[in-house]
Design a protein around this nucleic acid. Structure first.
Lengths: 114, 114
DNA sequence: CCAATATATGAGCAAGCGGTTAAATAACCT
DNA sequence: AGGTTATTTAACCGCTTGCTCATATATTGG
């Protein structure tokens, strides 16, 4: 319940499919349920709850229906997290080379510690 | 086993911590284990396996040690997935407005279908 | 108010996951 | 070869997750 994070929310393929669906436009809960014929209505409702908690979707109440929209908030966190690594990609191979060299040099001297 | 995806791999906080660690440079398995005193060595090893399967890390064998590096491959998939949504963010609120308007208009005519 | 509509919640169950201890595998060093 | 070091795999266990059917909670329209 409290442990719902963006990362765990998008771990489930069905929930990613829901996001893909909402990316094409807003839909009420029933409309989403209809797109997943292999699932029951309560099943989809549960997934929507998780997406809500992760702030990946937003709900607008309109009479009895809940209209779901993609929510930038949760996605921003995720984007930020990935971007951190992306900035560093080009250097990874070099880093490995440096690490191996350093280890090779250190091996001759070590065996003192621990 | 077969169901290991980038998304499920990063769902676990410990695995994200491992990635954060490797972002600062390569490390052998033992070096990673040492950074997680609350976990046992086999525990960490299993997390590393998941990260491997998700192509989020790369392994270089050097004698008995396995040196882990961040792997751009898996991260690229994830970045691509998020970017798809990011491109669409500015329009989401507008989309909701249009949806509500459309429904309001349609309501007067509908009730024929179903 | 009452029946219908739209969605969420409760209860229960099977499968998956993260964790541990114990054992297997592999490569180094005398 | 034999012991030590580094890491993975096996076996098991409790907790979480996702699913289902059944039931609750709104809200609308007659």
């Amino acid at each position: 319940m409290t442990g719902t994070t963006v990362f765990s929310a998008i771990a489930d393929p069905t929930r990613r499919a829901v996001l893909d669906l909402l990316a094409r436009g807003p839909r009420n809960a029933g409309g989403i349920v209809r797109e997943f014929p292999r699932l029951t209505q309560p099943g989809v409702s549960r997934h929507l709850k998780v997406l809500r908690e992760a702030k990946l979707v937003q709900v607008t109440v309109r009479a009895q229906e809940r209209i779901y929209t993609i929510n930038p908030e949760g996605l921003a966190d995720l984007y930020e997290w990935v971007a951190k690594y992306q900035a560093m990609w080009p250097d990874t191979l070099d880093a490995l080379g440096r690490y191996l060299d350093a280890r090779a040099a250190g091996d001759k001297v070590k065996r003192k510690k621990r």
